[in-house]
């Protein structure tokens, strides 16, 4: 799982450099996210712009992230592509996740 990380205005941005978030990368993705949490990050934005396909295991992994970050943390997703958006819609995850169009909007969500 190729993930680039950067910190912008106190927010940890995880850039997923994969075309698929599926069963092959679900476990490494969860581990990488867990690693970020154990490093003390509580405000995290995930750049999903390169993910062109998500399967049920990938969806499970990203829900796992939301559960793990807990009530004190904040998780925001941005750059969702149309196939991922339709998966989020059919599973109603668009109502569960904090979704934004791009990094700028995602970062603004933390300022409120």
């Amino acid at each position: 799982m190729r993930i680039a990380t950067k910190q912008v205005k106190g927010v940890l941005v995880l850039v997923l450099n994969e075309s698929r978030l599926d069963a092959n990368v679900a476990e490494p993705f969860k581990e990488a996210f867990q690693q970020s949490l154990s490093e003390g990050h509580e405000t995290i934005a995930i750049d999903m712009g390169k993910i062109g396909f998500i399967d049920s295991s990938g969806l499970g992994a990203i829900v796992n992230c939301l559960k793990k970050i807990g009530p004190d943390g904040k998780l925001v997703l941005f750059g969702i592509t149309p196939p991922v958006a339709s998966m989020f819609k059919i599973t109603r995850m668009d109502r569960v996740f904090n979704l934004h169009n791009n990094e700028e909007e995602a970062l603004q969500a933390f300022e409120i």
Binding site: S56, L59, G60, A61, I62, V63, N64, K67, T91
Partner: peptide, 9 residues
């Protein structure tokens, strides 16, 4: 407990 690992549609 480990949300998202085992679920179904």
């Amino acid at each position: 407990d480990d949300a998202g690992t085992l679920y179904f549609t």
